[in-house]
Design a protein around this nucleic acid. Structure first.
Length: 124
DNA sequence: GGTGTGACAATGG
DNA sequence: GCCATTGCCACAC
């Protein structure tokens, strides 16, 4: 086959998945119940430790994903529920985490370090 | 193809 | 030790 390099470019046609976002969805889906992780941890696992913002943005697009993405289990490095406003109701994220055993106060996970889950640890 | 964005993270004062 | 600013990288327009 004549090195038809165009076959490599067909990824750009579908923005729904394929690329960085899909990886984020996979990792987010792998988060065990009762555990939480941070955007930076996921980004770092993907090899782009500084693309943590993209992880959060991917979550925003998670609404287009067929499966359910436990975005409520993903918080920032401070353990703060920064993305709660993107849920149906701001309290939903808190309720979900509390339902899984997380201790949340002032929109901040108190036992964040206790239930913190690293993607590399889950694949281990 | 360039600009803007964005649910963060790291660094500096 | 806390607040402000910069960097960052991939996607959408």
């Amino acid at each position: 086959m004549r090195s038809d390099s165009s076959s490599l470019k067909r990824k750009t046609r579908n923005s729904d998945n394929d690329g960085f976002f899909e990886r984020v969805y996979v990792i987010a889906s792998m988060i065990p119940r009762g555990r939480v992780t941070s955007y930076g941890a996921i980004a770092r696992y993907l090899g782009s430790g500084r693309s943590a913002r993209m992880v959060g943005w991917a979550m925003n697009n998670s609404h287009s994903q067929p499966g359910f993405i436990p975005a409520h289990r993903v918080v920032n490095r401070n353990g703060m529920l920064t993305g709660r406003h993107h849920f149906g109701t701001p309290n939903l994220m808190k309720e979900l985490l509390e339902n899984e055993g997380a201790i949340i106060e002032e929109n901040i996970i108190r036992n964040f370090r206790e239930i913190f889950w690293d993607p590399a640890d889950g694949l281990k």
